[in-house]
Design a protein around this nucleic acid. Structure first.
Lengths: 168, 168
DNA sequence: TTCAAGCGCTTGCATAATGCAATTAGTCTG
DNA sequence: CAGACTAATTGCATTATGCAAGCGCTTGAA
């Protein structure tokens, strides 16, 4: 979607940049799934994003300053994508989106675990997560706490609980 | 956009419902502009929404439980649209979207005033605004404070400041 | 060095969505 | 009843999405 500047309202301008089906999904996967390459994002996409849409969005998000791309030293054809500070500051927005979705859509338990923790943790948790993302993506010092690890552990625990339940 | 349920992630499901260019713009205008009819929404659209897109979105948002429509007693052809509780609970999401847009896009000062106040006010202000929206849209008791009035007054003050500046 | 495998896109094509502007259908008032 | 106003709908061109095949690049093994 071209950024047309139909009005100067910040909500409108945000939607001109991110108001499509796929951009925030890509950001989500980089952010919460730590998927940093085209191949990972494509192969592990829960929603089955199409290859041309993924390539297009990565290009756009890079052009508009939400992702950066550097060549992978181990394979120069591959890009390693990182979140910019602007993208990291989308954490509260995505947390709220997850919270709203938990309440108002039919979301799955396991995939909602992160959203639940982020809602419970509130702004202190988001800030800690953003600090960690600055470390993972921007080279900032490693913070003491790994929110990413906590979210991942909770997700895996929910999966294991689900697997055990399916087994019974 | 059809709601395809590509995954059970709450962020994905929210985006399947609201992840297009225009749905949140319509919600924003009902919520912050108190525009309650097709004609108002069309005529006063800052972004110049097309008539077919507006009609389509009103129909969809009504079908998916974010708006309700009742005939205007004064003119039965006209509908009066109201936010549902699910839509009202989008306040924090829109507040964050506005805050992000203020920081990362080239938004206009006057149109950013509401976003600035909502960011400063945080969750207490959002909750007060949601209570007021429940009064305006759902028939709940009128709360003591009018956040809507405060936001509108600040916007008009910024407009007046702008007009005076243009005059000099 | 050559070749094959793997990978990151790109392309071809069909369908769906958007956007502009004109038109139609419904409602009310004089 | 006719005309004005209003809420959509329609016609058409452009753009976006989605599936799947294909192309070009990079690397590692023979």
């Amino acid at each position: 979607m071209p950024q047309t500047g139909r009005s100067g309202c910040p909500i409108n301008l945000t939607l001109e940049q991110l108001g499509d089906r796929w951009s925030l999904i890509v950001i989500r996967d980089v952010m919460f799934g730590n998927r940093r390459s085209y191949g990972e994002l494509l192969a592990q996409s829960e929603e089955g994003i199409a290859s041309n849409i993924l390539a297009d969005r990565l290009k756009r998000l890079t052009a508009s300053g939400l992702l950066t791309r550097r060549p992978d030293p181990k394979h120069r054809q591959k890009g390693i994508y990182s979140l910019t500070e602007a993208a990291i500051q989308l954490v509260p927005l995505l947390a709220h989106m997850g919270a709203w979705g938990r309440r108002h859509t039919r979301s799955s338990k396991e995939l909602s675990v992160r959203a639940e923790l982020l809602e419970k943790g509130g702004a202190p948790l988001w800030n800690a997560f953003m600090d960690e993302l600055r470390h993972l993506h921007l080279g900032a010092p490693r913070p003491a706490r790994s929110v990413f690890g906590e979210l991942q552990a909770a997700y895996e625990k929910a999966l294991a609980r689900r697997a055990r339940y399916a087994q019974d």
